[in-house]
Design a protein around this nucleic acid. Structure first.
Lengths: 335, 335
DNA sequence: CTGTTAGCGCGTTCAA
DNA sequence: TTGAACGCGCTAACAG
């Protein structure tokens, strides 16, 4: 590149001081329109772009936020990021991505490293492997932080979540109304509020319909795919449920494979319902009923909250924003 | 936050100079091991983390790369990002995300804004809306740039792509071997090398089997979903193809919907084959044959190349890295 | 309205 | 082996 073009250079060319240029570029009220115009035109002409590092160093503002999530290659999170990025664009912010892979140490390491002034704020959906709110209790004091979907409760931070309990209740009722009486539950995120709420919704719906909540009908998610598959197969063989309520998308595949391997027809023999943001799934398999979280909107909402905080705007009192999920009944005719 | 901890602070506490601390932290050969150890232990104790802005400003290195892609909420791209982020972690780099939404102006605006020293390099999969290599010809001279999947050809830059031509050829042959003789083509990315190569593979396979390549059997992708659906419906009604070769994942839904609306059974009446990184799709619908690009590996490979460039390492001569896609025949028994 | 001055935190001379 | 001094590009006091 030819001589770097910075405000010093602009100042020289225009025979004015560096400070004047800086103020003009920032549209300060102190500068005359005439001077501003001279600066702006030359800046455009020379293709001037401010050096972000210098600006950050001085102003302590990076115009950058970090998104810390378990994994990008997940329909929910990639949609969330899409929403976050769109809002960030509007506000002129940049978006950094960090994947924890459900590893709490990585999560802590990333967020800690962000404290050095690399970002103005953090958006996060925490790891499911452990639940240690102590760390986050301290963290939220140090940097603006917005949780989305997978949150730590009882913290002084904004949380954007969905109606996990209600939708799980509703979905379970739907299964019951379809005639299912022995509904197994594929339990994910059991360390997190979201996971617990989903299970509670399921359990309460059963109770409300005088159905028993049996531990034997619950399979807990394992990191190991093979284990999940085996457990579901065993569940199907031993307890013969007539429905599988999958609380996370990751359970869909083992659930299908298990049914398939045992030669169970879908939807007739075992009805599968799952939390899922895989928008094409129900289309490809019309028998799959899904609970779809508004991932895109969650991302947008979380980002908006963070930017409001960063701009010291009042957040409309509430710290807990709860968005509605959708229960998409793809097999209503079959009922 | 308590008093910020910077090298000045460390220097004071240890009664040594700032310069010594700086050198010690960077493991300079000029500093005695004893001093280094003192610095390191105190740094850890005080939880010192270097201020990235200051460091960038001084060293002109940001340890940050940008990923510029059409959209994150896409199975191919989210997998690519996953790969990129993983490699970035290994190399200690940070990853910024920018979505162009297939808008060439946004693309140009983003990449231009990155030239001010915010990032050390760029990974990009370009917009499909236009093909204007002039801009990129200049860009690659200004900043290390690696293209992946959607590339500009004939530029002095590394390009990571897949075997679009070969796999499309192979897939078409598969359809022919399944007995299809009237294979329609759903044409996406027509402005880009990848799109052209896929079509060429399809066309050449037809020719190699003495089948006619008819323009009437080609539907070009439109931004408007409704248009796509209508066009495919018309295609099915008027020309009655026995297979649909979808060159991009975005065509799967309209293809299915069109068949469904016309009450065509799948797989019997119209065979659908698609490029897709939706890993669960074939599982949910066993009749769907897919071409799966190694998106994750593409991301990893592209990132590795970029970091090698940034570290001035020799790239093993070749600038064009071509990875293999997979043709997953889900309906082999039906043949 | 404009200019002078003084750092932000770090890395890199060069001298001791 | 160590330290003093300077400057990266920019912003923010404070003068004028």
């Amino acid at each position: 590149m030819a001589e770097t073009v910075n405000i010093k250079r602009l100042a020289q060319e225009l025979n004015i001081s560096i400070a004047t240029v800086s103020k003009a570029l920032n549209d300060s009220y102190e500068i005359s329109l005439k001077t501003k115009n001279r600066v702006w035109t030359l800046a455009k002409e020379l293709n001037y772009t401010p050096n972000p590092a210098a600006s950050n160093l001085r102003s302590h503002k990076t115009k950058t936020v970090a998104v810390v999530i378990p994994c990008v290659a997940n329909n929910f999170f990639s949609l969330s990021i899409k929403g976050i990025e769109e809002i960030a664009r509007q506000y002129g912010y940049h978006v950094l991505i960090y994947q924890t892979h459900e590893n709490i140490e990585a999560e802590v390491a990333f967020t800690n490293s962000l404290l050095s002034g690399r970002v103005d704020g953090i958006l996060t959906s925490v790891s499911s492997s452990e639940y240690n709110s102590e760390y986050y209790t301290n963290l939220v004091k140090k940097i603006p932080l917005v949780f989305f979907d997978r949150v730590y409760e009882n913290l002084d931070a904004v949380k954007v979540t969905t109606d996990d309990y209600e939708i799980a209740f509703e979905a379970t009722v739907h299964l019951i109304e379809c005639g299912c009486t022995k509904i197994a539950y594929l339990y994910g995120l059991e360390n997190l509020p979201a996971g617990k709420a989903r299970f509670a919704g399921y359990a309460d719906a059963l109770k409300a319909h005088q159905l028993e909540v049996s531990e034997q009908l619950v399979v807990k998610y394992s990191d190991d795919e093979e284990t999940n598959l085996q457990q579901i197969k065993t569940l199907l063989q031993v307890h013969q449920p007539d429905a599988l309520f999958s609380s996370i998308e990751e359970f869909i595949i083992p659930a299908y494979c298990a049914c398939k391997e045992l030669c169970l027809q879908i939807p007739s023999a075992v009805k599968i319902l799952s939390f899922s943001n895989l928008s094409t799934a129900p289309l490809l398999n019309p028998s799959l009923t899904t609970i779809t979280q508004p991932a895109f909107e969650i991302g947008r909402e979380a980002a908006k909250c963070l930017f409001k905080i960063l701009h010291n705007k009042q957040l409309d009192d509430e710290q807990n924003i709860v968005l509605k999920s959708m229960l998409i009944k793809r097999d209503s005719t079959a009922c």
